[in-house]
Amino acid sequence: MSPASGIVELGGVAKKFGDGPPVLADFSLTARPGEFLSLIGPSGCGKSTLLRLIAGLTDVSAGELRVDGRTPEQAAAELAFVFQEPTLLPWLDVAGNVEVPLRLRGATRATRAAARDGALRLVGLAGREAAYPRQLSGGQKMRVSLARALVLAPKILLLDEPFGALDEMTRERLQEELLAIRAQQGWTAFFVTHSVAEAVFLSDRIFVMSPQPGRISAEIAVPLPQPRTAETRLSRAYQDLIVAVTRRLRSAEPATAA
């Protein structure tokens, strides 16, 4: 596949803040439409910075970054970001929170309601429209955060450890649901995580990153068949991949690290 067909293309991207050491150096990567890519690596390897670059929240210091054939700023409408914290507006109920991005774009009430209902159904929160964030569990809040990202029908979803603060059971359920939603909508995902198991379960490709400066130290394809379900986690292929990625991750860490 030619690089021109990538929906997100990074060529020799470098990033540094002020006079500090480079956070990312000579970073190249091409995401094909509909791909699920995970970024995994030790703290300080620039995973989150990479997402922020693609989101247009900060500019590249050097190199080429194209999102949907344009600059991240121009492609803003195709991008949605999900943080580790649900980052909901506590003064709005669930419906209000999911509608915020549409409201900012001046969408009509009918458009907002239709998109909001669709997004809430996708994340399994239909019927909770009137609840306020303080009345929701951590998992439910993350579902609202996901719905708010999906309500824009993005082409690219950027997820920065979205399930990192959740308990194991909630986390696995949300992983399965995220893949089910992706099967319906076909967006491209950049998923930052600290969990090898999570990366293997979700991804088409995993990029193991190493720090100082951040770069790709290994790229691992995940040939597990779709759809992936709870059953997938019991398969030999899945377990073997976890071992393989863990080995790569160990060798990516500095030798002095404990």
Binding site: A55, G56, L57, A76, A77, L79, A80, F81, F83, T87, L89, V100, P101, L104, R105
Partner: peptide
Amino acid sequence: LVELFRMWR
């Protein structure tokens, strides 16, 4: 939240 609002233009 400020960053999200910026991303939402």
